[in-house]
Design a protein around this nucleic acid. Sequence first.
DNA 1: CAGGTCAACGAGGTGA
DNA 2: TCACCTCGTTGACCTG
Length: 273
Amino acid sequence: MEFDSVCGTGLTLGLCLNSSPSMVNLNTMDSTKQPSFEPSLTLGLSRSHGDQNGRVVTKVGGDIGMLYRQDSTVISGGGSSFSNKSSKREREVGSEESERVSNDNNYSRVMSATSVNDGEDDDDCANGRKKLRLTKPQSALLEQAFKHHSSLNPKQKQELARELKLRPRQVEVWFQNRRARTKLKQTEMNFEHLKKCCEKLTHENRRLQKELQELKALKSSQPFYMQLPAATLTMCPSCERIEDTKSALVKNPFTMGAKPHFFNSFTNPSAAC
DNA sequence: CAGGTCAACGAGGTGA
DNA sequence: TCACCTCGTTGACCTG
């Protein structure tokens, strides 16, 4: 970024700031690495999905819907008006159904991990009024896996699900949410960093503006001849008299052109007025 | 009870 | 086409 302020006095004040990665693509950013910002005032967040703002999300099912779907898969097997994706999910649920059934005991145990009334767990599970809370060991293991890989391949997912006695879909969702949390945290950190940079630059700008004012004041307080361009002034080294060649010409236009009056101590050491 | 957290969802994008 | 991803959201649950 470059900031130049040119004022009427002919003084130019420039402030150049290097911004190596002025934009950080959060979508491709490694969450484990800190971006190396240089002071920059660019505060943009890139988003590859341009059409997502203002998109109206019509939620059909939700948590209850999902559970209802599970129920309908098991009990009635119909009555859903879900899209193809839902059908896909239903297939996935269906394919995982045997595993889910085999894990049902544990699932209920997990559901009751923070439950007050354990006796109603099965009923609550069935009507979808309870929320799954992962146990501490489960969370710890997932965190450990996340530290190793922020995303899983199908084999790792299956293995982790088996180890945690969860459905692969749950492991998958946990990783999705975990990535989202990491990204959010990173965004907040980036925001704080940029805020600090912004404050620093504002401070620096203020300081330079002040310096500029001082230079302006200094310039206006100096004698007139000091304000003339150096090329139009001559000074006699012996008498230290300063003469403006232009004004000399104006004074006596009929004389020969003003002798170059620059002192040259090498060629004419005794030159004097 | 308001606000935060988190598992889970649907919509839509993307790469193989 | 499908699997997987991000994004935005929902609703149950927790907490001060």
